[in-house]
Amino acid sequence: MRRGCTILLSLGMMSIILLCSCTHSRKFTETYYSENEATLRSIRSNYERMFDEHPFSLELKDPFLDRIGLEIITDSIKYIYAFRLNEPFLMDTLRRYHFNTKAFGDLIIDMQRAHCTWITNLDYYEHYERKELMFISVRHQSLKAFLKPEKYFTLAFFGDEQPVDEKKRLLDRDGKQQLRKINDKVYRSINPLVFYALTENYR
């Protein structure tokens, strides 16, 4: 009898933990975009403008902005840098590649404000035509759960409206109701241009 009670109590506690962790991430996915929409718009316009001049990806390696990662993409080679913000190397590198340093600083501040850890442009193909989407990964305390691996809230920003099914899942344009996956994940619609997924990797 006593053993049965212990098992029941353990199962009850596990259920509560699981329920709490699920509720956390579900609530986060529902509210994050609306709460951070203005900042995300600013990030998008700023990044797209800078990317057109110099293709790059940016990583905020920690929430305190001690370290950042910068990937500068040229036609022939990709340079992967890691910087500490209290070192002068970042500024020297940005100047060498003729980046707009103020816009770069604004982008970092916006990313930190919206808890973004990674921003890049991803290519995808529709009927043999190359297109790009902006990809942002969000790392947030609300997505961490006890005894579960950390999750990232990833956002895909498309340039034009995308088809979705009745469950608001991103579809391919081939007309066969095939789900379009990004990094092997199914994405769901926030609006016709913005889609999200919870993922195990931030890039």
Partner: peptide
């Protein structure tokens, strides 16, 4: 946000001669 001011300050710093030795 505690580092926002720090970033702006860093962005406004003049370039340091020969400081890019690492990268």
């Amino acid at each position: 946000m505690r580092n926002a001011l720090l970033i702006l300050l860093i962005m406004l710093l003049p370039p340091l001669a020969g400081s890019a030795m690492d990268n």
